[in-house]
Every structure is written in structure tokens, then in C-alpha cells.
Design a binder for these strands. Structure first.
Lengths: 139, 139
DNA sequence: CTTTGTGCAAAGGCTTTGCATGCTT
DNA sequence: AAGCATGCAAAGCCTTTGCACAAAG
């Protein structure tokens, strides 16, 4: 079910691929492809935009990256988290906290099984207002 | 914070706006703008694509719609469901089952509270292969 | 040497915007 | 009658793809 039947063949190690991986490793938040492209240019490790996209895509396929869609429609990537988890996002300042809890995982699996679904996966995001942003605006 | 300081002025009631609202009311899952546009055309309540986008946008501003970004980059809209529930979607045939369970709700609330988040909301979708589609393809 | 990755530019898909017309109020 | 909403088409953005060249194994 969750066995990766088609493990992507290892990619060649190029300067560009290395640069992307290193950059993602240093950053810890989610970044859009275009952001990463700009950062690479500023750094001197210039990489074509198309290559950035292709590299990110392959890294996602390999399970080394997490993807997220920003409300603006951009895809945001972050260096992989080996363990499955979800996000708690402040809808005001955008601060993100990683959360994970077995119960939800089990719940999803159980619910799916009860309905005869297999090969289950799920996406969950929790939105709210974080402590800093909840501070009373007036007075 | 959650006080709508800038309540958008009421929009004019047009045939198009009504059509979009009625359609969203009948559907219970998330639908992309383009899907909604097609559905309206099939129905006979033809509405310009641009208008569909503008209408959906205004409805979101009014808080009458929930938005979600699909992995493909499309925005998906759903009429603010009075009863909160989630979806179990077959990634093969698209069949959707509504599911709801208090535990998850409580989990989300608790996790958020633990991190100092207030005014919590969450979005959860479970994907899998339903029984019919899981039937072996060969033979 | 062969195969795969890179760059550039063009193409694609979803969404937004400008402007004249029609409908709501 | 006045003003906002609609339609159409053009423009914008992010992302993907085609093709020739360069680099990795």
C-alpha cells in the first residue's frame, strides 16, 4: 500500500542539484520555487529557473521534499521531514508550527478502512491566530 | 482579530450571482472555479468565466465560502458548510464520502490551544483508492 | 562514448484586469 | 437615471516542455 513500487532512479549529482539541496538544507521554512531561484542567484550559485523547477519536482518524487500550496497559488517547498506531520498556521502572520500526533493518523486510516478505501493518504492543515497576533489591537 | 472591521458592501443580486450561490449550495465538496463554470453551462445558467472568478472571490471576502488549493494549483471553493465534516476521496474515480468524527475536531482544537493559537479552523482531506477501483486491473 | 541534466525560450493553464454594454437599484 | 456587474478578450503569473548543448558516469 505505502510501498513505493516505483522508486525513482538516482539522479546525477550536478552542481545545480547540489546547490538546491544545500540551500534547502539551510532554510527551514517553506519557500517558493521562484524564491529559491532568486536566493541561488544572489548566492552566486546561479541555476536556471526551469532547472530549479525540475530539481524540486524530482526531489519531491524521491520524497526528500515537502510541498505545500500557498494561498497565492505558488508551490512552496521545504527540505524533507522524514516523519509525517501537519501544520498549524497563523492566518495573520503566517507563522507555522509543525505538529504531529499518531491519533489523527490512526483515525484517517480507520475511517478509510471502514469505507473500503486503501492506499490512504491525507492532508491536514490547522489555521488559527497565534498568541502574538491575538493581542488586543485596541488599547 | 476575528472582528470583520471592513465588512464588504452587499453585492447586487444578479442572475449570475444567484446561479453560483445555488450551485454551490447543492454541491457539498470542493470545486474548482473552472468546474463550477462548466457545471453552470451544462445547467443552462451560463455565466462568464471571469464573472465566476469575481463572484467566488467576493463570496470568499464575505466569508460565505471556503477556499482550498489543490495540489495542481487550482483553487477549490465550497459553500461554508454549516455542519463541519471532511471528505474521503477516491483518487481513481473521484467518489467522495463525507466523514466526520469528533475526535479529530477535538484534536485540532487541543493542538492549537497548546501552541497558543485561537480562532481555530482546519481543513482535512483523506485520499485513497475505493473498493471498486482497488479491483485488480489485470484479467 | 552514452546518457542524463541544463538553459533558454516558447507554450500551457489558471486567474486577473480593461473597457464597453446591460442590468440592478 | 446612476452605478455596479457582466462579458469578452488581452495580459499576468507560475509552471512545464522542446530542443540543442554541456556535463556526469
Amino acid at each position: 500500500m505505502s510501498s513505493p513500487d516505483t522508486v525513482p532512479p538516482a539522479r546525477r549529482q550536478t552542481r545545480q542539484r547540489t546547490a538546491v539541496l544545500e540551500l534547502l538544507d539551510e532554510l527551514d521554512g517553506f519557500r517558493s520555487a521562484q524564491d529559491l531561484h532568486s536566493l541561488l542567484r544572489e548566492r552566486g550559485d546561479s541555476v536556471g529557473l526551469a532547472t530549479v523547477y525540475r530539481t524540486l519536482q524530482s526531489l519531491v518524487d524521491e520524497g526528500r521534499l515537502d510541498v505545500l500550496r500557498s494561498p497565492d497559488g505558488e508551490a512552496a517547498y521545504r527540505s524533507c521531514s522524514p516523519s509525517h506531520h501537519h501544520h498549524l498556521v497563523c492566518r495573520s502572520c503566517g507563522r507555522t508550527v509543525e505538529v504531529s500526533d499518531p491519533p489523527v493518523e490512526r483515525w484517517a486510516a480507520r475511517i478509510a478502512a471502514e469505507h473500503g478505501f486503501a492506499d490512504v493518504q491525507h492532508e491536514l492543515e490547522v489555521f488559527g491566530t497565534c498568541g502574538s497576533c491575538a493581542a488586543p489591537p485596541g488599547r
